[in-house]
Amino acid sequence: MIRDITLGQFYPADSVIHKLDPRVKLAGTMVFIVSLFAFRAPEAYVVATLALAAVIRLSKVPLKFMLKGLKSILMILMITVVFNLFLIPGTPVLRIWKLTITQEGIETAVFMAIRLVYLIVGSSVMTLTTTPNSLTDGLEKALRPLKKIHVPVHEISMIMSIALRFIPILLEETDKIMKAQMARGADFDSGNIIQKAKNMVPLLVPLFISAFRRANDLAMAMEARGYHGGEGRTKMKPLIYAKRDKLAYLSMLCYLVVMFLASRSGLVERLLGL
């Protein structure tokens, strides 16, 4: 039951997007998000929609999984829309009791909603098609220049990937210990807050011990295999750009140019004016 949550992120599939270098996907996500906020014209959103749809199609991840992330921001989304709708002054369109909805309010609300939704879906594309480990690998490589100013890039990324690796393990462990204590008659659901906190002791103590034991074992195993930090360390699968990665960067550039031209064209206005 608990395992569903963590594994829910990465969706294994055999697609071009999955195969892309994680750095490309990081950059692509960044470009997409910036483009959402940099251009305000309706034409820009048409371009963004097409691009997003194309990438989702290529990734072979079912749309259902892409939209899953939206559930968590539904509340924020609604609040944003409602506030924008009613609080932005301008030409009144509709009047409900004491509240007025304005032309400008509708526009802003719609744009904000689209931006938020695209932001989440856009980053979901990245997390669904990239394993956490390759993501940290990509980050490490992309941030390498920071080493010059003594930022411990390798160490940070190692910590991140170990932490990511441990999350599902610890969740599984929690599930197991909880069941084991329930078999001894423990009760994790009823009682008031103090009672509940007390009831957590049989879960938390073994969980901490297990986490320390695992950390200790891992440190030993790394040491035994000669790990000595990032200096001079080679990789089994070094990140090297392939042709498809270069094509992907090129597509990003095209995307930005098209978006720029589209937002200058005034196409939508002309169409509406006709």
């Binding site: 078999a183 001894r184 011990i209």
Partner: peptide, 10 residues
């Protein structure tokens, strides 16, 4: 009694 039950001692 679960597998590795000693992990539940607290």
């Amino acid at each position: 009694v679960f597998q590795y039950p000693e992990h539940q001692l607290f």
